[in-house]
Design a protein around this nucleic acid. Structure first.
Lengths: 353, 353
DNA sequence: TTTAACATTGACAGCGCTATCATTCACATA
DNA sequence: TATGTGAATGATAGCGCTGTCAATGTTAAA
């Protein structure tokens, strides 16, 4: 059973294909009687125009590509949800390209990224959004950067929470610095002075920004930072747990911990509880990202929201602007927000004993 | 700057487009010297063939459509991740169509579903996967069913964890009945007799299956079920919380609670703790789905895994089979697995006091 | 040397649609 | 009645690619 084309419709309605195309796109006046007849025939056959043929001619597909590192990481569905809404409202459909999760074929994220990039180009997407947050500065070789730059010459690209140094690709970023400052300042305002930082990876720009901002805020408040209380090494619950255990092994444990993200914070809480500590009475813990889990955890996590949905939404808006050839700001910064919940509290002098 | 086409390549290489096409698809022998020359020119121009044109002719696009209700619900990214892997390994790219989340334009899930369905048809996807779990029996009108059936005549469709009664659409389902039985039996084996069921919605098939299986297992073990201890009303944390509060208000509270999903279980634990109960000593709680959060929660959640990744993977495999016109089983059932963690424990007689 | 059998290439139609230009009507105005 | 104007329509050329058929070379067996 062959799908019906506008030729079939045209023949049955005794008109030319041009006329059918006209009623389809409402691109020129068609006599009401003719139009009605054509529409009826279309309905009768449940005619659906072939978007490939149309796109081939019009050089626009209404399709976007969205690259992200791991849909299984709860941060990304949030971003995606904002992005989805904005994209849909403008009539786009998008390919989801997961570059790292379920990595059973031993291909690394960057290789997969370039594979997807070229597939997307071949499929003639109207634009590409790369959601970062994992950009590893060491690994971003000149080659990789060059590739993305090359792609961005062919089709608009915007990066969310990522940045390719030396390029001028449009991006929308959370203000990580401000976010980290909020977190640390919150702890300090609560009376804490002995504040640790755990989680993340040295090579990653987001970790660095968070950590640097931590150091700066401490210093600005006249607090000396203790190198031993900065412990990097991962973004997940288990890693958070062992990082916290290290901290607990120190001769003098901190009264508060700033975690590189919420997962690490959860791990930290688990370790602390196992050690018999009560949160937040004995120890305050603050996370980062405001993943949905954060609010359902016990205790509910104090954290800083990166406004993930807004990030996604804005990314899509910027991309749309680019596609429409509007002049867009090169970088859009989204202000995070401190979310105070239950895992932080005022320092107690006794808690150090 | 116009994109280069095979014509440009052909001209520069002094061959016909047919030959260029041949080296592109390796579809007929080409003299090595000619091939090398063409390849070099392609590289020089970073030539990427236009997939639209190719697909228009070949009637296959390598694109799939994936419909799901809410990417923000942690169950779906898991399914998607399995699906992604299987689809990618077979060379497919897919459109992600979120039919319900971020629903700010007041269009309901079913309307959006049909919108997406027709977009996907127009884009000529090779197949469609609908991930359910939210199919509301009341709302699945004849119209909706008819629509999906109509679509499935044009392109292969597979439903994951969903079912349109009266149709013969291929599907892969978790064995909800068996899963619920595992959960309840686990509780009974632990010595519990007074077991409640909370969460879900009466109109949904998954809720019904879980609930019926709960009743059956109780009865099979010679336990009478107490109607007051079955409380439906939602799938999220807050709803779980208030459902649990209702339960706690009962003259004789249960010693164990079987929750319709993990989110409800988390809510239940929150309510129980607030009431001063210790989990699992005073109350055992078991969830359903084995969402990633379940293992990071405190206490770690005992639950039954629906094998979400496997579900997705299998769905993609079945769809691929259908696309390849292989004979596929109409329904594939995935066996769930009981995951015993910390939120359930043996009954203590004293816990009833 | 001749000829069959491949290897290699070219020409060209056509996938389903839209844009452009040309043509035909139907009226209203002069 | 002649003419202009806009409304309706048709004819047709591609969009970039692949498949088919035909036309060349080339090589090895006869």
């Amino acid at each position: 059973m062959k799908p019906v084309t506008i030729y079939d419709i045209a023949k049955e309605a005794n008109v030319s294909v041009a006329t059918v195309s006209r009623v389809l796109n409402n691109t020129a006046p068609v006599r009401k009687s003719t139009r009605d007849r054509i529409v009826e025939i279309m309905n009768k056959h449940q005619f659906q125009p072939n978007a490939l043929a149309r796109s081939l001619l019009k050089k626009e597909t209404g399709m976007l590509g969205v690259l992200l590192p791991d849909i299984t990481n709860p941060f990304f569905p949030e971003v995606l949800s904002g992005l989805d809404q904005a994209a849909r409202s403008k009539g786009y459909t998008y390919f989801l390209c997961d570059t790292f999760s379920s990595n059973e074929d031993h291909i690394d994220q960057y290789t997969r990224e370039s594979q997807y990039l070229s597939i997307l180009i071949e499929k003639q997407v109207d634009g590409i959004i790369m959601i970062g947050g994992r950009i590893n500065l060491n690994r971003v070789s000149a080659e990789m950067v060059g590739e993305v730059v090359e792609v961005s010459k062919r089709v608009p690209v915007v990066m969310i929470n990522g940045h390719l140094p030396g390029t001028s690709i449009h991006r929308v970023n959370a203000d990580e610095r401000a976010g980290a400052e909020m977190a640390v300042q919150h702890l300090i305002d609560l009376g804490h002075r002995d504040i640790a930082f755990i989680g993340g990876y040295k090579q990653m720009s987001n970790t660095n920004m968070r950590m640097q901002s931590y150091v700066r805020t401490m210093t600005a408040n006249g607090i000396r930072v203790d190198e031993r209380k900065i412990r990097l090494g991962g973004f997940n619950v288990d890693q958070g747990k062992s990082l916290m255990e290290e901290l607990l092994g120190l001769p003098e444990r901190p009264t508060a911990v700033f975690c590189a993200n919420d997962m690490v914070a959860i791990g930290a809480i688990k370790a602390a509880r196992k050690a018999g500590l009560h949160i937040p009475d004995d120890l305050s813990i603050i996370g980062f990202d405001d993943v949905p889990t954060a609010s359902s955890f016990i205790p509910e996590l104090t954290t800083v929201s990166l406004k993930s949905r807004l990030l996604g939404q804005t990314g899509a808006d910027v991309l749309h602007g680019l596609i429409m050839k509007s002049k867009m700001k090169k970088v859009t910064v989204i202000q995070p927000e401190l979310i105070v919940r239950e895992s932080t509290g005022p320092v107690k002098v006794a808690s150090r004993l």
